[in-house]
Amino acid sequence: MRRLILIASGFLALGSSASVQELRMPQFPMPELVTDDFGATKQIGFLKFLHELQKSGVQGLDDVEFLDSSYAVLKSDCLPVLAAWLEAACRSVGVELPLARKGPYDGTVFARLLEVGASLAAVREHGKPLAMPIGLMICKRQHDWGDLGGDGQVDAYVLMETDRGLLVYDPPTRQLVELSQFPNTVDILRIQF
């Protein structure tokens, strides 16, 4: 009960932020990173990344872009808290993420926000020279994926490297799938990390 009240009051505080004109949002949680047997943070270089994309069925590697050379790997267990942060951050500016597709929707905003938030947390917490493996994927929706119909529209999703492999995440619908199982892999237009 106490926890529920705390959660509710937290949302009230965030929700009222628009009236005081400040941007108030929960501090970005440091994503849990995969470590090796010796406790060192697992790293993945962009060449291995490329190989994984290829294994997952991505064909046009010319449209894949890496701006860093070494990336950490996320524990997939931390996705629920990352999703909660993204929804709360959006709510703090008056955007209800689950309803975002009802208006003009630009998924790149949310993918970037998640990536930037994770990077800010990493700077705060550990400062290791590893980029966060949260990227942007733009593709044509040629085939149905859950709530998202195969209507040929261009859409953007979050793509993450995790201990489960590469995962595709759609923030408004909260849908998650392994890239290898994503129905529109053939129609990917751009991947950017």
Binding site: E22, R24, Q27, R174
Partner: peptide, 23 residues
């Protein structure tokens, strides 16, 4: 069946709030 992430609101409630300058 489509997998969906269930946001962890309890973990979120434990995070401090960041106040950013007025944009």
């Amino acid at each position: 069946p489509v997998e969906r992430v269930v946001p962890d609101l309890a973990a979120l409630s434990r995070l401090p709030v960041t106040v950013l300058p007025r944009p």
